[in-house]
Amino acid sequence: MSDANGNGHGRLTLTAKDFRTDQEVRWCPGCGDYAILAALQSFMPELGIPRERIVFISGIGCAARFPYYMNTYGMHSIHGRAPAIATGLATTRPDLSVWVVTGDGDALSIGGNHLIHALRRNVNLKILLFNNRIYGLTKGQYSPTSELGKVTKSTPMGSLDWPFNPLSLAIGAEATFVARAIDTDKAGMAEVLRAAAEHRGSAFVEILQNCPIFNDDAWAFVRDDKEGVNRIVLRHGEPIRWGKDGEKALRQLPDGTIEACGADEDGVLVHDETHEEPSLAFALSRVTQATHGGTPVGVFRNVSRPTYDEMMADQLRVAEERRGKGDLAELLHSGETWVVS
């Protein structure tokens, strides 16, 4: 019927409409979340998973309203805790396809601990982090991904916090799947989501998302980059090239860092998302618009490791094989007993 990822091998004929709810979508006009929602609703039927086996879990923030708009099972929980709650669900119900929707504040600030531990355990979750580099729902304070010196209502003289790089953090937390997509790039996002859905274990996807109210155009350089001047599209097994005419490229130096070079120069890096060592993916995560003149999107890392729920199920199975199915009366009478007559 279904494989362990909840996949039903495309036998269902659902459409995007089937994934819409009767709830009025209440994000601000122009919010990047609309594009992501539409992309996900269009993409979901492709998975062939019946709606009842899909669960969206979120924390708090603008992005966290997401589950209300997906006609699947869902939970809008508490700030930062979605990965923890989803861990309990995914661990007890390996038959489900569990998705976490989170934001930069939710995932990296208040929920940072839960995020890194879910990733290192390789719980079977798909984590979508909508990164708009600002707190939206609380009306415009700086977030853990806001740039140093960011002037907001809570930082009138500029923020003093060095920002997180979400992908570097995820790779450092032993994530087995790490990718980046852009809210308005429907095709690119579908490609990344497809790979994430197929990945068994934790899949972490940063989605660059625009907040038109409090941090408009934070990602304009890649979001509006129709000609691919700034987007570096990573494709497994292919040389990493970008630019209007593919004239720019990346290469790795002996110290492991990555620099931009001409596409015709020697040593152009060939992308290998399956490399066992996370250092290549990490080095790629350090490639930014500011430092390299381009922003990589696509799958950075995609390796296989046993998942938490599989290993737990294995232990339960082995315990039952060794000791037989637990018998309550036997348990109570274990140890030293004596009879009073």
Binding site: A84, A86, L89, T91, N113, H114
Partner: peptide, 16 residues
């Protein structure tokens, strides 16, 4: 990883 996650995971399991 912490007390919060312990409770959260239990709620997630209950949901399931």
């Amino acid at each position: 990883e912490d007390e919060i996650a312990a409770a959260g995971a239990a709620v997630g399991a209950s949901f399931g």
